[in-house]
Simulated scan of single mutants.
Amino acid sequence: MVTVHLRLPAPLPTQVLDLPGSTELGALLPAGWESQAYLRTRSSGPLSLSAPLASLAHVGAPSHPVSIDVVARLLGGKGGFGAQLRAAGGRMSGGKNDNVDSCRDLNGRRLGSIKEAKKKSELVESLPALRAKAAAETKAKLEALERKLGVSSDAIDAKADGAGAKRLAEVDLEELARKKHKFDDNKFMEESREINENVRSAVAAALLKKKKKKTDAAKQDKDKASMPPPKVAATSA
């Protein structure tokens, strides 16, 4: 005889049965449960219902009870669940935030602070190059201005006997001031004139409206003052 602990699905209680070793496992299932449940042990998968009970007995202790679980079958889906999980995982990983500036290193410093310090150090190292670039741009602008005014910077630093270039002191500033530059943008002039006329018209209309309003108010006050007092009905004694 083999002692069987048959654990049924909750809330059904566990049954203790003493059965011969030649009993088939299918006999342990209640009637009509063959298509709705299957048998298994804690260390195995689904058991064959035609296998004898003695095949589950312990080799070293044949009298030891055998524990068998009755597990309800679950209806399967239409499939594609794994594909849906992979697609959802791809969407989640695609929108993952890789900003780790708030994290700390082994020394307790924030990674964002370390990055900021590196940027500042690189800026300090490149400061001479930036200053040289700014000086070169300033020099280029000055040379362009000197060429436009007809002044040579070499002549400024040259000696008095240098020839072929003007000195800055020799430039006739009054002559440069007398030069006039003609502005030929007719479209801009027309638009500017139209805007000025519109502003003047709007201001004149507002002033006229205000004046008319004051005149109407004064006329109403005058009409009220010229109206005779209301008559009082005589009462009989």
Results as ranks from 00 to 15, higher is better:
Asn186Cys: 00
Ala134Ile: 04
Gly82Asn: 07
Arg110Gly: 05
Ala206Leu: 12
Thr235Leu: 12
Lys231Thr: 13
Val66Ile: 15
Leu173Val: 12
Lys78Trp: 07
Lys211Tyr: 09
Pro128Asp: 12
Ser121Ala: 13
Ala88His: 05
Gln84Asn: 03
Ala51Val: 01
Arg91Ser: 12
Ala31Ile: 05
Val59Leu: 13
Asp157Val: 11
Gly79Lys: 04
Gly77Asn: 14
Ala202Cys: 06
Val4Ala: 07
Asp223Pro: 00
Lys119Arg: 12
Val70Met: 09
Arg200Ala: 13
Gly94Thr: 00
Gly32Arg: 06
His64Lys: 14
Thr215Asp: 09
Gln15Val: 03
Leu176Asn: 03
Arg178Lys: 14
Ala205Asn: 06
Asn97Trp: 03
Leu53Pro: 02
Asn99Arg: 13
Val71Arg: 02
Gly76Leu: 10
Ala206His: 07
Ser35Val: 08
Gln220Asn: 06
Ser50Leu: 14
Gly21Phe: 04
Thr23Gly: 05
Gly94Arg: 04
Asp223Gly: 04
Ala135His: 07
Asn99Asp: 15
Ser63Gln: 11
Ser192Arg: 10
Asn97His: 07
Ser55Trp: 09
Leu127Asp: 08
His5Tyr: 02
Lys115Glu: 09
Pro230Asp: 03
Asn196Ser: 15
Gly77His: 12
Val151Gly: 00
Gly32Lys: 09
Glu24Cys: 02
Leu6Trp: 04
Leu123Ile: 02
His181Trp: 11
Leu47His: 03
Asp18Val: 08
Gly76Pro: 02
Lys213Gly: 09
Ala37Asp: 04
